[in-house]
Simulated assay, not measured.
Amino acid sequence: MGSTCVRIAVDAMGGDYAPGEVVAGALRAKEELDVEVLLVGDPQEIEASLPANASLNHVEIVPAEDTIFMYEDALIGVRRKPKASINVAMSLVKQGQAEAVVSAGHSGAVMGAALLRLGRLTGIDRPAIGAIFPTMIASKQVLVLDVGANVDCRPKFLEQFAMLGSAYSQYVLGVPKPKVGLLNIGEEDCKGNDAAVRTYQMLKENSHINFVGNAEGRDVLSGDFDVIVCDGFVGNVLLKFAEALGNIVLQILKEELPHGWRGQIGTAVLKPNLKNIKQRIDHAEHGGALLLGVNGICVIGHGSSQAPSIFNAIRMAKEAVDHQVLQRIQSQYQSLQHESG
C-alpha cells in the first residue's frame, strides 16, 4: 500500500522530558518520514525548544493553554482542563485537521481524552492498549493487549481485544492469519480463574479468531504467538518487567565487553550485531503503544520518552494510518454484526 503524507498531532507538553525531547523527535520525524507534525502546547516553550537552525516555517504549532500533569486524576483533569494539550490534540483529530495523536503524557488522561472526544468504535465496549514485544525469532514480533487501559476485564472484553489485536497484526504487522493466545498460568483449557476459563471457551468458539490456546509467561516472547490477550493489570506488569529486562541485558552487554584497545576493536567488529540487539530489545525502538478501539489513531508513549521514542511513536501512528487500521477494524465488526443479525 502506498504511503501518503499524514498529519499527526503531537502533545508537545506530555512526558518527563517535554517539550524539548518531544520537539526533537517530532522534527526528526518531519525530516525522515512523510508526515506533517502539529506540535500542540505552549507556543513559547515549544519555540524555545527548537534548535537554532530551525525556523517556524519548519513546524506548525497549535496553542494549548494547559497541561494535565502525572499526579492529577486523569478524568478530572480531562474534564476540568478542556484546553489542555492532550484535549486540543484529540480535537484536531475529531475535526479532521489531523489523522493521529501521539502523546507521552499521563496515559490515563490520554485514554480519557480519546474516549470523550473520539468515542469508541462501533461494537467495542472497552479500548485496549496494545504493545509490541520482541520475540526469539528475529523477524517476528508479538502484540500484547491490554497493557494498562483496563485493570479488570470481562471475558467479552478480552474477546474484543483478540479481534482488535488480530486486525492490527494482520494489516500493520503483515501476519496473514495471526495466532492468538490467552495469557494464563497453564496450557490446559481448565487452567486459571473462572474468567480465564470462560474467556478460553469464548475465544475457542469465535470463528473469526485464530485462537491457538493458552500462553504461559514463558511463551510470550517465544514467537509461537502473534497476539496475546490479558487484562490491563497483568499486561502492565508484563510490559514494565520486559522493559526492565531489556535494559538489564543492554547494561550487561556494556559491562562485559572488554575495556581498553581490545574493547574498542571488539566493539567495532560487533557494532552491527550490537545495533541489531538494541533494536530488538530496547523499548525506545518501538516508540509506544497503540490505543485500539477508539475512533481515531492514538499512540501512547512512555512517560520517560526521549527523542528516539517520540520519533518511533510517530512512525507507529503513521503506519496505522497508512494501513487504514480504523477502517478495517470497523468494517470487520460491521460484517460480524451483519452475520449475527
Rank of each mutant, 00 (worst) to 15 (best):
E47P: 02
E45F: 04
D42P: 05
P82W: 03
A113I: 01
G130T: 07
A89M: 07
R120K: 15
A84L: 06
V23D: 05
G123I: 08
F69Y: 14
G41K: 02
A98C: 10
T67C: 10
L92N: 00
I132L: 15
V40D: 00
P127F: 00
D125W: 08
E21G: 09
V101C: 06
L118C: 11
I124L: 10
R80P: 02
S91M: 10
G148K: 06
L116F: 14
K83W: 04
A109P: 07
I46C: 08
T135F: 11
I132T: 13
G96F: 01
V23F: 09
Q141I: 04
A64V: 04
L116E: 11
L92T: 01
R80M: 11
V144T: 10
F133G: 02
F133M: 08
A64F: 05
K140Y: 11
K81W: 03
R79A: 09
G112C: 06
D34G: 09
I68V: 14
E21R: 08
N87L: 05
L56W: 05
L75F: 09
A149D: 06
G119T: 10
G25L: 04
P134N: 11
G108N: 10
V142G: 05
M111N: 03
D66V: 04
P51M: 14
R120Q: 12
L39R: 01
I137P: 07
H58V: 08
G41V: 05
M136H: 12
V40M: 02
A64W: 01
R28V: 05
Y71P: 00
L143R: 02
G130E: 04
Y71C: 09
L38C: 07
V93K: 00
P43G: 09
A131C: 14
R79D: 06
V59W: 00
A84P: 03
M111C: 09
R117A: 00
D73E: 15
I76L: 12
A74F: 07
V147S: 03
L143N: 03
G123T: 08
V37Y: 01
L118W: 07
L118R: 07
F69K: 15
S49K: 02
V110Y: 02
M90I: 03
T67S: 09
H106Y: 12
L115G: 00
A138V: 15
Y71H: 14
I68K: 02
I132D: 01
E72P: 12
Q141G: 06
D42H: 06
V101Q: 03
L145D: 00
D125G: 15
R120W: 07
G77A: 08
R80S: 14
P51Q: 14
G77Q: 03
D66G: 04
K81R: 09
V110W: 01
A131L: 10
L39P: 01
S91N: 13
L75E: 11
A128E: 01
G112I: 00
A64T: 05
V23G: 06
Q44G: 13
A48G: 09
F69W: 13
N57I: 01
E31V: 11
S91D: 13
Q44D: 15
D73T: 08
D42Y: 05
T122D: 15
G96S: 07
V147Y: 02
A74D: 08
A89E: 03
L121D: 02
